[in-house]
Amino acid sequence: MADVILKTSGLTKYYGSKLAVDHLDLKIEAGSICGFVGRNGAGKTTVIKLLLGLLKPTAGSASIFGCDSQNLTPDIRQRVGYVAEGHRLIRWMTIARLEKFQRAFFPGQWDREFFAEMIDYFELSKKQKVKHLSSGQRAQVSLALTLVPHPELLIMDDPTLGLDAAIRRQFLEGMIRLIMEQGRTVLFSSHILADVERVADRLIVIDKGVLRADCTTEQFRDSVKKVRFSFDKTPPEEIDIDGYLNSRRSEKELELTLVKTTEQKIADWAQKTGAEKFDIVQTSLEDQFIDYTAPQKRSRLFQWEKD
């Protein structure tokens, strides 16, 4: 088994009386790209800040490279790259000044050539001032500043928010390149499920501070299914099938969103209720996510619950 890079145990955070993160147990291994998804206000940013020690947990703990997030040593910090939401950079600085500023935090680790290459690749000049950059350019600079020390772990909070399609693709390319260098681990939150599907091999879904899914992207794709049952009469009122999330009905049709079920169970239920036929409908990751996070019933998908 690969090394555990990032871990939380019973991680819980209250803001006053509002519960933001609820007993989160996570374990992320070296070499994976984790897409961290959840609706607005689900607690993603809070979790990221807790992991980096920027917030104090109310209960439970988080650790990075085996070091408690509340006591991260400079050594550990140097192995982590963090891209904050909104790419906030110091406005009055030029790119050259920003580089100098950032370099001070990574003694002996700063790859000047690589930085120059990236600035060149993004068609920027080191003389440009932050306040004159577009939001896409600011994102590019902040990515360059984060990648240059070659972090083993990269944590990004919604890095592609508000960026155009071409710059988003550049970002994704950068991520793919990063994990191709062995042992790199990435955790990134995003609302663009198509991006997550492209680059993430692991999907972490949280909703209202609760972990709802932690599995491979492909397991999630295979687990959340839409099934359309056709009847020659009114469909049954009671839906007693395993993994039932929600339903839509018409006069003679019933469409169910099911999670973690098998074709055999679907066929058995169809027979039991006297359905004429059923079709399993493939849907996009985005549709699956929407169905999964807005259910009438709650269920969870985990990969790690066995160990």
Binding site: I33, R169, L172, E173, I176, R177, I179, M180, R198, V199, A200, D201, T217, E218
Partner: peptide, 17 residues
Amino acid sequence: VRKLAAELVVNPNTVAN
């Protein structure tokens, strides 16, 4: 695998799978 993954901008595990 890695070449195709880089070209398509997808996770190498997806191609390997």
